[in-house]
Write a protein that binds this DNA or RNA. Structure first.
Length: 779
DNA sequence: TTAGGTTTCG
């Protein structure tokens, strides 16, 4: 019998221990040694309630104190008892009983730092061949002590608005954002999780673990987590959670009504009625306070230029080159657009050949890049995946009749981009399997007849898309904002006429450039009429690094019109940063109204400041004044928008001219006004595109030169706003649907003007679209 | 240690 209750009479045990057992001292316990013939002895000072683990196994935790080593600093140890043995022990044991535990396994105790007990714990079970001998005193005297011994573990959970720097806490939260575990640049996997709770405070946690399984198993926004022993630190003025020793997590489905089954790798955890209630309460709160991700997008619903999470099964994989890797996946539906096929060597393609062939028109090729390659390589064929923030991109239609869609998982982990493996028990996987099986049963004949470049809705649900496109074929997708009384002119007539003239036309958009819409955004100087590319962040970064070499000049601090603060960074670089807050009426304004100037800041620091303050102007010190940086850098940042000045047309004036705006009754800090007082010729963000228009009589290329009117999207915000980028791409997909024949393209109504451009050799006629906007129900 | 949520532009 693995648990034996033995009597002690006058301090002596009636039954001796088996002779082969040798006593082991707590001081000499070590992980990894063979402890089959060893025992440890101690008095039971604490026992937790008998519990059931996730798999139904009984579990009991008992704390033993080593009576021979009462003086040593660490003289108590946790005993984790599993299965029937746990049940038996709980039945017979009493406070003060002496335990002899034999044939145990020694493991690191994750709670040692917190409970101050031995750095190892002992694990015992019948299956492992363990035995427990309990020496008990007279039942009469022990009975009264029983109550004091069964103490439920008291975990205190801290609300997110009560977190303090430097503490280790337990907490609950609803997942507002997460990065699925990815391989960090160090030795561990990393997962970033942002939580919220009913206090409405956010906490971003950075979790590391060398074991993928030990990180929280979060699958979607809205999941609920319970973290134990997470360390709280202050970082950049905000509380941050980070894994500490003994970190443990449980994850729950966030949907009200779903079974409350914790996902965890930990064999041992407490989970009782009180916890269950907390989850239910958080689910209810989340239901009205968090937008839980809806049903995941299927391949049949994809649109070009979207970021979405795809739940799918891996059918094949192949190496492509050093920085990219191919995954062939399917989800049982058919993408309504032609999709690309990534060429790879046949011998590099892993996966079942017959299946790959059979599903060739239902699988899509996903190219994953950079940091995702290593993880992608390790994926098992047949496993179920969720690919987060997968990008659908419309490929250039330059040389082809119809364009196609590409699937990219770009490098980096921004926006939670990554790959997660879902267990078969996941409800979404169960649903997916039903779908995949039904397609399998439909047989291969449907698929055989489906050529990859044909449209076939056998497995797709494209009703919405189709009806949308039908609408577009009837009504024009662009309308005039003026000149409605004019009648249409055929393109044939226009191209044979002299310029300059103005026309109303009805035409179809055959193709457009650039296909990569972000390339259409330029900066325009209305003074010299020059166009230039929008500088990239690297250039700005270099300028900032260059200007940070010169330390801020303290003599320029705290003037009549601004207050200054300066500090030195704690890192090796000892960088000096100064911020000058412009005053209004001798007072500092609210952050959201404040204009500040910064010296020595990095790109990231400046970016953070723009989130909180109205305007940020990067500056540097000279001997006697502050001045703007090189005009290749933005002279002003407001919200998401970087404002640039024309190098040719600007004559920078002293920054103190800003004080004239500050002196206004309500300084509005308009970019145009700031530019004016600083002698900057403000560059405007514009879309510049070339539309190839056809109408059956002829064709012409017309330029679109638009700040905001045509797309009803400000060009200044498109580069930093993904939502607007998608909106613009959707608009272009409606104006010029990928994969459609000319007959099926919608009509555009446009107003265009012709004009002459002369260069040294010849004169040419150009056309420009104006007074035209995308129809209201298309936007 | 790693990353510290702010998409690529292949």
């Amino acid at each position: 019998m693995p648990v034996q209750l033995l009597k002690i009479t006058e301090g002596q045990s009636e039954t001796p221990l088996p002779s082969h057992l040798q006593k082991k001292d707590l001081k000499h316990l070590e992980e990894g040694c063979d402890h089959a013939d060893k025992y440890i002895q101690g008095v039971a000072v604490l026992s937790y309630p008998l519990m059931k683990l996730g798999d139904g196994t009984d579990f009991l935790k008992v704390v033993l104190q080593d009576l021979d080593n009462l003086c040593s600093r660490i003289n108590s140890i946790n005993i984790l008892i599993y299965g029937k043995m746990a049940e038996d022990c709980a039945k017979v044991m009493r406070h003060g009983d002496i335990f002899v535990v034999a044939g145990f396994k020694v493991n690191n105790s994750p709670t040692a730092r917190e409970d101050g007990r031995h750095r190892c714990h002992l694990e015992v079970s019948e299956e492992a061949g363990s035995a427990i001998y309990i020496y008990t005193k007279s039942r009469k005297t022990a009975a009264s002590e029983t109550a004091s011994m069964f103490v439920a573990p008291k975990y205190v959970y801290t609300p997110l608005n009560h977190l303090k720097d430097g503490t280790i806490v337990n907490l609950y939260g609803v997942v507002k954002f997460f990065k699925p575990p990815y391989i960090s640049k160090g030795t561990d996997y990393c997962s970033v999780v942002t939580l919220v709770d009913p206090s409405n405070v956010k906490l971003t946690c950075t979790l590391f673990n060398g074991n993928l399984d030990s990180l929280p198993k979060i699958y979607k926004i809205g999941d609920i987590v319970r973290f134990h022993r997470i360390k709280i630190r202050e970082y950049n003025g905000q509380m941050q959670g980070i894994t500490s020793g003994g970190f443990a997590s449980l994850t729950f489905d966030g949907n009200a009504g779903a079974p409350i089954v914790p996902r965890t790798s930990s064999k041992v955890y407490t989970f009782m009625d009180e916890e269950q209630k907390t989850i239910e309460e958080l689910r209810l709160w989340a239901a009205s306070n968090i937008s839980i991700s809806g049903p995941a997008a299927k391949l049949s619903c994809v649109q070009p230029m979207l970021y979405f999470d795809l739940t799918c099964q891996l059918v094949g994989k192949a190496k492509v080159d050093g920085s990219s890797f191919l995954l062939k996946v399917w989800d049982g539906t058919k993408c309504p657009y032609p999709t690309w096929k990534v060429p790879v060597e046949a011998e590099d393609l892993e996966g079942e050949k017959a299946l790959l062939h059979q599903l060739r028109n239902l699988t899509v090729d996903i190219l994953v890049y950079d940091n995702h390659v290593q993880l992608a390589k390790s994926l098992k064929i047949g496993s179920f995946l969720r690919i987060y923030s997968l990008h659908t991109k419309q490929a250039s239609a330059d040389s082809e009749d119809v364009s196609h869609i590409e699937f990219h998982l770009h490098g980096g982990t921004g926006y939670g981009r990554g790959i997660g493996v879902l267990p078969e028990s996941n409800p979404d996987v169960k649903e997916l399997k039903v779908c995949l099986e039904s397609v399998d049963q439909a047989g291969s004949q449907n698929m055989e007849s489906t050529a990859s470049l044909e449209f076939d809705d056998t497995f797709s649900n494209v009703t919405d898309l189709e009806s949308h496109l039908q609408r577009c074929q009837q009504l024009p997708v662009t309308v005039l904002t003026d000149h409605q009384d004019l009648s249409n002119t055929e393109l044939k007539t226009i191209v044979s006429s002299t310029a300059p003239q103005q026309y109303r036309i009805r035409a179809k958009l055959r193709t457009y450039k650039p296909q990569k819409l972000h390339q259409s955004v330029k900066l325009h100087c209305s003074k010299c009429n020059s166009l230039q590319e929008v500088p990239d962040a690297d250039g700005f970064d270099l300028i900032l690094q260059g200007s940070a070499i010169t330390a801020p000049n303290p003599e320029l601090h705290n003037t009549s019109w601004y207050d200054s603060v300066m500090w030195t960074t704690q890192d090796q670089k000892q960088r000096k940063i100064a911020i000058h807050f412009v005053k209004h009426d001798e007072m500092l304004q609210q952050p959201e109204d404040t204009l500040l100037m910064i010296e020595g800041g990095t790109l990231k620091e400046i970016w953070k400041l723009t989130k909180r303050f109205n305007c940020v102007i990067p500056v540097r010190s000279t001997e006697d004044d502050l001045e703007l940086l090189d005009l290749s850098a933005p002279f002003l940042l407001q919200g998401n928008v970087k404002y640039y000045g024309c190098k040719q047309c600007s004559t920078p004036k002293p920054l103190r001219n800003l004080s004239s705006i500050a002196a206004e009754q309500r300084p509005s800090w308009e970019p145009a006004e700031i530019a004016q007082v600083l002698g900057i010729e403000l560059l405007q963000y514009v879309f510049v595109m070339k539309f190839t228009l056809v109408d059956g009589t002829g064709a012409l290329n017309a330029y679109l030169f638009d700040h905001e009117k045509f797309f009803q999207i400000p060009a200044s915000e498109i580069l930093t706003n993904n939502f607007l980028q998608e909106k613009m791409q959707m608009t272009m997909n409606t104006l010029c649907p990928p994969g459609k024949k000319l007959d099926d393209l919608p009509w555009l109504e446009c107003f265009i003007k012709s004009y002459n451009v002369r260069d040294a050799i010849k004169q040419q006629v150009y056309y420009q679209i104006f007074d035209t906007t995308v129809a209201e129900d298309v936007v």
